[in-house]
Amino acid sequence: MSALARMRLAGLLRTGRALAPLLAGLITLGTLYGGGRAQPAEAYGVSAVVLFPVLAWQTKILLDVEPDVQRRLAQVTVGVARERLSGLLAAAVAALVTVAVALLFPWLVGGVSGPVGPGDRSIPVGLALGLWAHLLVVPAAVALGALASRASVGGAGYGVAVLTLGGVGAVVFGLTGSVAPWLAPPIMAAARTTAGDAAALTLLGLTGWALAWSAAVVGGYLWRRRAEG
């Protein structure tokens, strides 16, 4: 599985198609951190929200770079389950690299500050909460990107529609007072949590919610591809 994941990551890098989502992510982060300095936890919470569609798009690009016939060759070689898993693994690795850049970025541009008041969190706690918020986004974004991939939905138009609906839905259904918050991954709730009271139970609940949402969407992705193999 790792060999196939490596091959797919190499394909993403060699075609240069990784640049588009990376640039989009950097521009978004630049805009986000260009307005002034903020506490790490708060800043990272928002950063994770804006990275969600970027990481989903990056996943779709990674999975779409490979020609359909090559994907089938890989499936014949390693089997159905490992072919699907290796695609998700490659996307997760690529997403983690982007997350690392996102975590580093505000320190390079002076977008974050240390604690200034008595109630402010220390930098390590802020970093930990920021890392949690970003890691929460990775499985959800990978799942959405996989569902939007060509292997899942076929035409490019449907893929863009799935990405757009997923990205907008995550914000709209994640607003406070949403009638159906469970329709979206809890990235908005995570951002509110990092900016407010981050109780352990809350963090655990949101983590479980994100994983369950991601599992459901990955299930949809696998179901869409059920005719293969």
Partner: peptide, 10 residues
């Protein structure tokens, strides 16, 4: 396959 997928960056 009938047509080898040659559109790959390798």
């Amino acid at each position: 396959p009938e047509r080898f997928p040659a559109d790959q960056p390798f």
